[in-house]
């Protein structure tokens, strides 16, 4: 799996439900970041030349390759707009949520 997925967290009921000390599974993500967005990126696949600049520069790594197309994990996109701003073809638009 290329990126961790949102996972349910069982709230501890007993002290032994906690890990021994501050240690936990890498990539364990009970929370999404979608709520941070005011604007969301929308890809125009007709304009997109699949140069992967957006993929490279996304601070949150939410852009992925999907059979020759880019795809965005909207659970973790914060809507910063770097992808749209850096796109050489203006193929990504930031639209209000």
């Amino acid at each position: 799996m290329s990126r961790p997925k949102h996972t349910e967290y069982q709230i501890p009921q007993h002290i032994n439900d906690y890990p021994t000390g501050p240690q936990y599974d890498a990539g364990f993500l009970p929370e999404k970041n979608a709520g941070w967005r005011t604007f969301k990126p929308v890809v125009n696949h007709d304009e997109c030349i699949y140069c992967l600049r957006c993929y490279l520069l996304c601070p949150d790594g939410t852009i992925m390759k999907d059979n020759g197309k880019i795809k965005i994990d909207m659970d973790y996109c914060k809507g910063c707009g770097v992808c749209a701003h850096e796109c050489p073809k203006d193929a990504i638009a930031m639209e209000k949520e």
Binding site: P12, I15, Y18, P19, G21, P22, Q23, D25, A26
Partner: peptide, 29 residues
């Protein structure tokens, strides 16, 4: 020890805890 980083079982160590959990970690200690 279960409390270690390894490539078989990757972990994040030394994390921060919110007030919701900090007392529990100290209780354990």
């Amino acid at each position: 020890t279960p409390n270690k980083m390894s490539f078989e079982n990757p972990k994040n160590l030394g994390f921060s805890s919110r007030p919701d959990d900090n007392t529990e970690f100290k209780y354990q200690q």
